[in-house]
């Protein structure tokens, strides 16, 4: 039987050693980890215009190397952060809202989703090359088990969807997770419209049992109705947040 003093000494030495060791390792790997995370996020954004990039560079986004992703992103993408009234917010305000770095790519949508609707910040990425302009916006909603989110790329007319990319936290693999894993699902969004001919806001509906209206609807995934309804809700609400901004460009 050990004395209490020995136990305390043992625990203090053990935890001290472990804490120092892990902190050291974290410092060593931090650079690589941060870079990986940034590339991961940039890739997700570029995936929403993968069809265009495929045509333009004959290359799939998922096959791009880290350097290529960073290069494309830095040379062709401008990023802005907007408030709910469609006005650009400066970096200091974004940092003050709790997003280190202050750029649109640093905006943590999970944090923004917890705020009141009127106070949220919206990241916006504008891709521009050789006269091709895409407005890439960020949306976030709820799936079956946890949150789902995605990027929606709009063409220059701000009405036609150029592409989308989705991700999720914990949807069922093979069912809800297909919104990300199955490249065919995001592909069905391409060319759909978020405004009707008369300018009314429609956004996009994921329809269980198959799309009824080819302009505004896409086919649902069988066995993943709740996730698909989540995508619909996210597209309806999330895209609408950017309407005040769209109005300023259209003028």
């Amino acid at each position: 039987m050990h004395s209490t003093a020995y136990i305390i000494k043992f625990i203090v030495i053990l935890t001290g050693t472990v804490a120092l060791g892990l902190t050291g390792l974290r410092e060593v790997t931090k650079g690589a980890a941060d870079r990986n995370e940034a590339v991961f996020n940039k890739k997700a954004i570029l995936k929403s215009i993968s069809s265009h990039l495929q045509e333009d560079m004959n290359m799939k986004v998922k096959d791009m190397s880290d350097e290529e992703v960073i290069d494309i992103f830095d040379s062709r993408v401008k990023q802005y952060v907007l408030d709910m009234d469609g006005n650009a917010v400066d970096e200091a305000a974004v940092v003050a809202a709790g997003h280190k770095g202050g750029k649109a790519e640093n905006v943590d949508m999970a944090k923004e989703k917890k705020k009141d609707e009127a106070d949220r910040l919206l990241p916006l990425f504008v891709y521009e090359k050789d006269g091709n302009t895409f407005y890439i916006i960020s949306v976030r909603g709820n799936g079956l088990w946890d949150e789902i989110w995605g990027c929606v790329a709009l063409k220059e007319d701000l009405r036609t969807v150029a592409g989308v990319s989705f991700d999720h936290k914990a949807e069922t693999p093979g069912l809800g997770a297909e919104i990300k894993d199955n490249p065919a699902f995001p592909k069905t969004f391409e060319g759909k419209k978020i405004y009707g001919d008369d300018g009314t806001y429609t956004s996009i509906v994921v329809r269980k049992g198959g799309a009824r209206d080819q302009t505004f609807e896409v086919d649902g995934i069988s066995g993943a109705t709740v996730t698909c309804d989540g995508v619909t809700e996210m597209m309806q609400r999330g895209v609408k947040y950017y309407e005040p901004y769209f109005a300023t460009i259209k003028k």
Binding site: V18, G21, L25, N36
Partner: peptide, 16 residues
């Protein structure tokens, strides 16, 4: 601590 090591290493070498 070992699990944390695995996590840190994985984060740095294979983020996906």
């Amino acid at each position: 601590s070992l699990v944390t090591i695995v996590e840190l290493v994985l984060k740095a070498f294979n983020y996906e």
